[in-house]
């Protein structure tokens, strides 16, 4: 019963307007915006980025690799949902697929399928307190990097330089990212992360006597902005309390800084986020807050209650 409802009630149909709700255009627009699921926006932006990346040769991958990532992610999602007897949700594996295609390169397409499966599988395998522990795409990237350094030499790698450091691109990405994260009530995580990372990088430059062009160049990195707005801000794997969330984001930035500048690790941000996610449940103990629910899910629930 809930399933067909959910399909019909996409936010843009306006079907969610309660009887007697305001009908003026501005109010109505606000209602529609309130119903927009951040995941739809994120999918729109990530797929645009992927299309742009493919068209401009920024992303050096093949359709086979993309299809493989999707196959792995969706297969794992279906299996996982079946095992926990849940309704299959398809937005999450789609976002995971897009994120992996943007961030990870693999030798064989098969490894991309593995990345998709591992990423999505981590949601079901690694859970604490009813929430999955790791951001799926981040888990996929980190596990594939660790495998590449051990069992599967050279299987996967990231290309942090490929998004370049052009200011306009960084600004455009940040604008789009801000839109999505505001909708998901997680813009603060991205901003705290970027400010902390910027602060540390600038402090380092001042200490070393380096020109500020150096931290500026680092901060304009397209890869860093994508990470800040589209990975660290996942509402499901960031703390719900705003203080814990700020500490979480600052922690990711601090770890990323140390990994980048002192351990010379090019994939610092991914390891930093994985480490922070691992201790997230502890952080939440100190700042309890209601668990985040996707606006779409919340509305479906509300509608069901109204009907009842």
């Amino acid at each position: 019963m809930p399933l067909p409802m959910a399909i019909l009630e996409t936010p843009l149909t306006g079907a969610l307007r309660a009887p007697g709700a305001p009908t003026r255009l501005g109010e109505r627009a606000r209602c529609v915006w309130a119903g927009v699921d951040p995941r739809h926006l994120q999918i729109l932006i990530l797929s645009s980025l992927l299309a742009f990346g493919l068209a401009s040769n920024v992303i050096d991958t093949s359709l086979a690799h993309i299809a493989a990532a999707a196959a792995g992610a969706f297969a794992a999602q279906l299996v996982g949902c079946f095992m926990i007897a849940s309704r299959p949700r398809l937005l999450s594996p789609l976002i995971t697929t897009l994120s992996l295609c943007l961030l990870l390169r693999t030798d064989a397409a098969l490894f991309m399928a593995l990345a998709g499966a591992v990423a999505t599988g981590s949601k079901f395998a690694l859970r604490v307190g009813g929430k999955h522990l790791f951001n799926p795409a981040n888990a996929g990237v980190v596990i594939m990097l660790l495998l590449s350094a051990s069992l599967l030499p050279g299987a996967a790698w990231t290309t942090p330089g490929q998004w370049g450091t052009a200011f306009w691109f960084a600004a455009l990405l940040a604008g789009a990212g801000f839109l999505v994260t505001t909708r998901a009530a997680r813009a603060d995580a991205a901003i705290v992360f970027l400010l902390t990372f910027a602060g540390l990088s600038i402090a380092r430059a001042l200490y070393l006597g380096d020109p500020l062009d150096i931290p500026r160049h680092r901060l304009q990195s397209g890869a860093l902005i994508i990470f800040a707005f589209f990975m660290i801000t996942d509402p499901m794997t960031t703390p719900d309390g705003k203080y814990a969330r700020a500490a979480f984001a600052a922690g990711v930035a601090a770890i990323a800084y140390v990994f980048t500048y002192h351990l010379f690790e090019p994939d610092a941000v991914f390891y930093a986020l994985a480490l922070a996610c691992a201790v997230r449940p502890l952080m939440e103990v100190f700042d309890r807050a209601p668990a985040y629910v996707w606006p779409r899910d919340a509305q479906i629930k509300k509608k069901q209650e109204t009907l009842r």
Partner: peptide, 14 residues
């Protein structure tokens, strides 16, 4: 030994 090298802080373009 493993494979191609690229720059991480600048774009590497073919």
């Amino acid at each position: 030994r493993k494979g191609r090298v690229e720059t991480t802080n600048y774009r590497t373009v073919k």
